[in-house]
């Protein structure tokens, strides 16, 4: 079995993540969709790493995971402070930067 099925799976999961980011209004679910997209890209990187016999792809996944951890910590802190100020995580109601 080649790596093509992995690439198709990764594309489908990325699309599901995009749908979640665009269509959902709950900030936490939007955030989880972003994690899903990051993971689908990781799957592509691992697949090509196996295909090419090159370890660089796996190292890149390692760094993506670190960035995702940092992003999750800061993003959830932002959601907590937003909830504290507006009592909601509905993204349609968080529009103070819009004019």
């Amino acid at each position: 079995m080649g790596i093509q099925p992995y690439l198709y799976l990764s594309a489908i999961m990325f699309m599901i993540g995009v749908v979640g980011v665009i269509a959902r209004r709950n900030a936490i679910i939007v955030f989880m969709s972003i994690e899903l997209m990051l993971n689908s890209v990781n799957l592509t990187l691992i697949a090509f790493s196996a295909q090419l016999g090159n370890v660089t792809g796996q190292l890149l996944v390692f760094f993506v995971m670190t960035v995702a951890a940092a992003e999750a910590a800061v993003g959830l802190a932002i959601i907590i402070s937003l909830f504290r100020n507006k009592q909601t995580v509905n993204l349609d109601e968080i529009n103070i930067l819009k004019w």
Partner: peptide
């Protein structure tokens, strides 16, 4: 990066 994330999360 992780240090910055910790400080940022605590501050926010």
């Amino acid at each position: 990066l992780l240090l910055a994330a910790i400080i940022g999360a605590v501050l926010l």
